[in-house]
Design a protein around this nucleic acid. Structure first.
Length: 284
DNA sequence: CTAGGATCCTGTCAGC
DNA sequence: TGCTGACAGGATCCTA
């Protein structure tokens, strides 16, 4: 679930609380969710590679965290003045923890980090810090939209000529960071129908798509990610990209903000896909 | 090599 | 009510 903006929101949030904090203990409640040896180093840095989070420790080890579809990280500690929670949206961030979905608990000197994951697709993996960039997932990642230009994307599209443009931009080895929400939003903004074959996309459209991806993800990061990224307080303040900024995702049945045509939901690239049938034409 | 579908797992919701 | 299948903000594996 969490896409690049959510993971970046988590990175920035956690950095405020756990850098220089020492892990005192790791408790694994679901074996599948934790790979490698438990470790107890002090946090030196937090990095992000696409949708993967890397927590570097002072003992040459790093925690690699991927939330996949339903992962959440919830930090409970004084510095957070309560809780900092982000990842898969849920209305139970204020629940007592651990809960039924808690898979791993990382205890720090002055706080606790809960890794929750309903579907168990996500994981925390301990690897040598020097090996992070050799990790099989990390090393295949393409550039993020901010480091890529239209020409580069256009060239990559030619390698998947008969795939739908949506399938191709969801491929993290083509362009890094987009998931199902931002793919739909970016294609809508760029006025490209998600089922168009990649080879029919012009260089100009590729450029527009990159710009759109940057814009929707920047907006989301600025608003704290589309999930509930929040310091959970009594008033339940939360990040809400979907409510504030999404124009097509989960907007089926509502009028297009540009032309008023009813937004539809269909299935493309094996994923639920939202689009405006008037603004996004199947034939270029 | 590409393209598409199945798969991992738990939970919810629509429809009968 | 109880069952069933579809679906879910991701990525990998398998098959043709």
């Amino acid at each position: 679930m969490p896409e690049l903006p959510e993971v970046e929101t988590i990175r920035r949030g956690l950095a405020k609380f756990i850098i220089h904090e020492k892990i005192t203990k790791i408790e694994v409640l679901c074996e599948k969710s934790f790979i490698g040896e438990k470790t107890t180093g002090r946090v030196e840095n937090i990095r992000r590679f696409g949708k993967a989070l890397i927590i570097d420790l002072d003992n040459h080890k790093s925690l690699m965290i991927h939330l996949r579809m339903t992962g959440q990280l919830i930090y409970d500690g004084k510095k957070a003045k309560g809780r900092f929670a982000a990842g898969h949206p849920s209305d139970n961030f204020t629940d007592k923890l651990p809960n039924k979905q808690t898979r791993v608990i990382i205890y720090f000197e002055h706080g606790t980090l809960f890794f929750n994951d309903q579907r168990k697709f996500g994981f925390i993996k301990v690897i040598e810090t020097s090996e992070v960039e050799n990790d099989s997932f990390i090393k295949k990642l393409a550039k993020e939209p901010w480091e890529m230009n239209g020409r580069e994307l256009y060239d990559k599209l030619q390698k998947h000529p008969n795939s739908s443009i949506k399938a191709v931009i969801l491929d993290q080895t083509v362009i890094c960071g987009l998931g199902n929400i931002y793919a739909d939003e970016s294609l809508f903004m760029a006025k490209i129908h998600p089922s168009r074959k990649a080879k029919t996309i012009t260089e100009k459209e590729a450029e527009q798509l990159i710009k759109s991806a940057r814009e929707v993800m920047e907006k989301s990061i600025d608003s704290g990610g589309s999930t509930m990224a929040t310091y959970v307080r009594a008033d339940g303040t939360k990040g809400d990209y979907l409510e504030k900024f999404a124009q097509v995702f989960r907007h089926e049945g509502k009028p297009c903000v540009r032309c008023g045509t009813t937004i539809i939901k269909t299935r493309i690239a094996g994923r639920g896909t939202h689009l405006c049938p008037h603004c996004q034409k199947e034939t270029p």
